[in-house]
Structures are given as structure tokens and as C-alpha cells.
Design a protein around this nucleic acid. Structure first.
Length: 280
DNA sequence: AAACAAACCTGTGCGC
DNA sequence: TGCGCACAGGTTTGTT
């Protein structure tokens, strides 16, 4: 579910409402959510610590703790991080709860129906063995910036469809199925075009559109689809779904050219939508 | 190298 | 109304 703009929105919420508040108490309901380590390890490493920073790389949230440890959270398909009063009813599928200091008493909740998501707490010195995927991430276009020359090199190195390449987290971190389609549409590039055949002019457009689309989506608080799975820390929906041009619009007339229709096919294992007229 | 499927889970929407 | 199936924002792993 959540891609870079949604995760960034959650990160900002954590920075505002979680950082600086001591974690008094930790509960782990479903151990699967902390499967990389264990219930005991997560409780022991979090209890009594205070988060000092909330960072993001691609779709990965990383919270620094005053103990020196880090907490990595990945939402995968259905994860949510919510903060609410301890007196409110916990949503179904609340698997990890961090009770925070302060009045009114609030708690941070990790909620995840499909349980693909994870909470991992670890010593950064052993990050390479506990969270090896972090070291494999490519540049994050928003957090670190994306060098156009590097994008050109990455694309020229593969014959895969450009859509599949954009979703490869080792090439660029943070783009998922929604934003991949929206970026390619705005850049007017056909998603099936082999990445190495994307022209220099198209790569310049693609680079600009990656930044435009992601920044606009962040400004809109991300995309909340009909199932309302994605909401921010306060439970608020995003609004970028109202500006999707191709994602979820198969069969509709293209909103940009007004002539073509949005078509869809599976590319790189993911349903992909594009305009047959604007995208070449 | 890359295409593909399956795996991990649960919920929802659709056709019948 | 109920049932069964297809499908879903992600990532890893294994097979052609």
C-alpha cells in the first residue's frame, strides 16, 4: 500500500508527535509483526528509550533512539502507524503498542491486517546483518536527491521494461505501483519500453516527473484508495488519489490528451495502466 | 538477465 | 443474502 509519499507523511507525523516522548511501556500482540527478532527483544530494547529522530529511506521508516539503537518500520501492504489516546479503542489488527509519556496519555500503534509489515529494533552496528535490505536501497529521490546521470546509468544497464526498473528499489528507492504509473504517464513514456531504450530526452523528463509527482503527492498527504487502508498518524486520509491520471483508471478516457484511453496489462508482475496515445 | 510464479496474510468487491 | 473467486499499495525466493 504505502509508497514514498505515504511513508514520508507518516515520518513527518512521527517527527511531530513521537520524537522526544519517552516510551514507558511496550506491548507486542502478534509476534509475527516482530518476527525478525522477537517479542522479548523488541520490548527490552524499546522500553524506557526516547526517540530522537524519525528518518526515511525509500519505503523504510527508521527511528533513532537515545539508547543508540534504531527501530525500523516497514508498512508493506497494509501497515499503519497511528497515535491516539490510550482511552480509545484499539483498531482490529493492532499488533504493537508503545505507550508514551505526557498528558493526555497517548500510545503509538502499529496496525497491520495482512501482517506483511514489520517492526525491527536493532543495534546499528549490526544493521547489515539484521536489516540487509537497507544497504541495497538505491538513492531516495526526496531524502537524498536523485542524480540525473545516475538515473541514466541505472536505466541504460538493464533491458527490463522501464516500469519494472522504476519499481526496483535498488535503482531508485521509494517508487511503487501507483507512483510508477503516474510518473511514467506524466513523462509520456510507455511502461513497456526497455529501460535501456529510454532516450536522453525522455530520461530528463522522467527525472523531472519523479520529483514533481512525488513532491505533489507528499504535499497532498499521499494517496488513500477506496479501502482507506492508508491514513496518516492521526488517521487522516491523503488526497492525491483525486489527481491520479492513470492508476485505477483503466478503460477511462485519458485526462491529459482527451483522445486515448487508459489501458492496462501486467508488467513486471504488477498491473500497469497507461495511455496508449500519450505514452511512447 | 529477466520473466514468472509463489509465498507471506487478510479484507473487499464482484459476479452469480 | 451468501458463496467463491480475483485482486490489492510490497518484497523475497525459487524456477524456468
Amino acid at each position: 500500500m504505502p509508497e514514498l509519499p505515504e511513508v514520508e507523511t507518516v515520518r513527518r507525523g512521527l517527527e511531530e508527535r513521537f520524537v522526544g516522548r519517552r516510551i514507558e511501556h511496550v506491548e507486542v500482540g502478534r509476534e509475527r509483526s516482530v518476527r525478525r527478532t522477537s517479542r522479548e527483544e523488541v520490548i527490552a530494547r524499546l522500553t524506557g528509550t526516547t526517540p530522537t529522530a524519525a528518518r526515511r529511506r525509500g519505503k523504510y521508516l527508521i527511528v533513532d533512539l537515545d539508547s543508540g539503537d534504531q527501530m525500523m518500520i516497514h508498512l508493506r501492504m497494509s501497515g499503519q502507524v497511528l497515535i491516539d489516546s490510550v482511552t480509545t479503542r484499539r483498531p482490529a489488527h493492532t499488533h504493537v503498542v508503545l505507550t508514551l509519556t505526557g498528558r493526555p496519555a497517548e500510545e503509538l500503534r502499529f496496525v497491520d491486517p495482512r501482517t506483511f509489515g514489520e517492526v525491527v529494533v536493532y543495534d546499528p552496528d549490526v544493521a547489515d546483518s539484521v536489516v540487509p535490505e537497507l544497504a541495497r536501497l538505491g538513492p531516495d529521490p526526496i531524502a537524498e536527491g536523485l542524480d540525473p546521470a545516475q538515473l541514466r546509468r541505472s536505466l541504460s544497464s538493464t533491458a527490463r521494461a522501464v516500469k519494472a526498473a522504476l519499481l526496483d528499489q535498488a535503482l531508485v528507492a521509494g517508487i511503487g505501483n501507483i507512483y510508477g504509473d503516474e510518473i511514467l504517464h506524466r513523462a509520456r513514456i510507455h511502461p513497456k519500453r526497455p529501460a535501456r531504450n529510454v532516450s536522453p530526452k525522455q530520461i530528463r523528463r522522467l527525472h523531472a516527473c519523479i520529483h514533481e509527482v512525488l513532491n505533489e503527492a507528499i504535499a497532498a498527504g499521499g494517496s488513500t484508495l477506496d479501502d482507506a487502508q492508508y491514513v496518516d498518524l492521526m488517521g487522516e486520509a491523503g488526497s492525491f488519489q483525486d489527481r491520479h491520471r492513470v492508476y485505477g483508471r483503466a478503460g477511462e478516457r485519458c485526462l491529459s490528451c482527451g483522445r486515448g484511453h487508459v489501458v492496462s496489462a501486467v508488467i513486471g508482475g504488477r498491473t500497469t495502466s497507461w495511455c496508449g496515445v500519450c505514452q511512447r
